[in-house]
Nucleic acid binder design. Sequence first.
RNA 1: GGAGAGUUGGCAGAGUGGUCGAAUGCGGUGGUCUUGAAAACCAUUGAUCCUUCGCGGGAUCCAAGGGUUCGAAUCCCUUAUUCUCCGCCA
Length: 423
Amino acid sequence: MLQLNYIRENKDKVVNLLTIKNFDASNIVNEIIELDDLRKATQKELDDTLAASNKLAKEIGSLYKSGQRDKADEAKTESSKLKLAAKELEQKFTEVVTSLNNKLIELPNVPHPSVPKGNSDADNELIYEEGSIPELPENAIPHWELASKYNIIDFELGNKVTGAGFPFYIGKGARLQRALINFFLDEALDQDYIEYQPPLLINADSGYGTGQLPDKEGQMYYVGIDNLYLIPTAEVPITNIYRNVILKESDFPIKNVAYSNCFRREAGSYGKDVRGLNRLHQFDKVEIVQIQHPDKSYETLEAMKDQIASLLRKLELPFRIVRLCGGDLSFTSALTYDFEVYSAAQHMWLEVSSVSNFENFQANRMKLRFKDKEGKSILAHTLNGSALALPRIVAALLENNQTDEGIVIPEALRSYTKFDLIN
RNA sequence: GGAGAGUUGGCAGAGUGGUCGAAUGCGGUGGUCUUGAAAACCAUUGAUCCUUCGCGGGAUCCAAGGGUUCGAAUCCCUUAUUCUCCGCCA
């Protein structure tokens, strides 16, 4: 959520930048400012009424003490009137604040000026590419066939026990998962991240804090009986640690890493893009989250980008980095880099990581602040990225490394897998 | 799941209807002293919003929400949560 004062002071800038996200904010921004004016006026009136009422209540106290009952009773009648007026004003105030908030929530984060215009992933800007696309033999097969050939991932079994998108990992498949998770975590620990194991279910306040609620409600699994949501990413619990927190400037940077299962309903997905590991309802991911001083968040974003690139390099996967265009950028993000690895048997790029700077958009919702040198409360910046999501990494590893002898495990992983070939 | 007791400022902890945004201690910050540090002493130390050019003034917040009252941290209701005991259990 954008800050009210920021909107008031940068009205035209907000409207202009949001056109990059294909969002016409001209009306809503005016409505917001009008509602805020009304809010201020109503609050003034309410505060004055309450002040008068408080003053009277104090007088009644001393009137009783000095035994002036008649005067006290008179004042009581007066006070009752004020109370009624205050109640009406309060109701009006609540209504105004509620509609103001509802409007504010509709407004997406303002994109960074470097974000290109565009409507879809076709308009994303390629900024980096590394590694050569492997030439596979004629008989190369996609990962879902490799998975059953070597009996390492069983999608059918998942269908039976749960449903589509919930595979079983078996034998070396399961061990590969565990190896990747540990590899990713260790790499983050080398970069001075603190490791967390978060809850996998979160309450509505947390969903709201990072922006999954209210607009992406349908993408989360919901446990109605306890009013909890399954996390779509560890970003949600890890960032919400800092909900309603006031940090010290010396706390920066906060660097957290967490492995978790992620649960996504992916309502509306279908077709070849969801084959095999390409899109799952439950998957594994190691997530990095940083809380940073506003002056340093873009520097941090670049560092996180480099960190993720180094993971893919160590896994010897060909990858590219794109800067998301306005149309592809999420509601809450100001700037996002997507990482894609080349899946040689599917002949396509698979998105394996997203690293984003949310600036103070999440922090404003969460009231995540820090005290600057003058003691003023300022919103912090939040960033996160996948480092990395497993399924598509596994898909690319299986496909790109297939040989007649079996699937070759990259060097960097062998101390974790304790095997160098799946056969 | 059942019974009981709690939830107060960064922390500990007082406060059971009016002068309480809240004693006291610790911690934090600034200062005195000191070559420096410690100790001691002094001062200061919550958040949000409205208003004012500024000084300042006002409102709200004692887990959350609602109620009683002229007036609520204090009384009542609901919810969340913590602890103790019982039950169940990896």
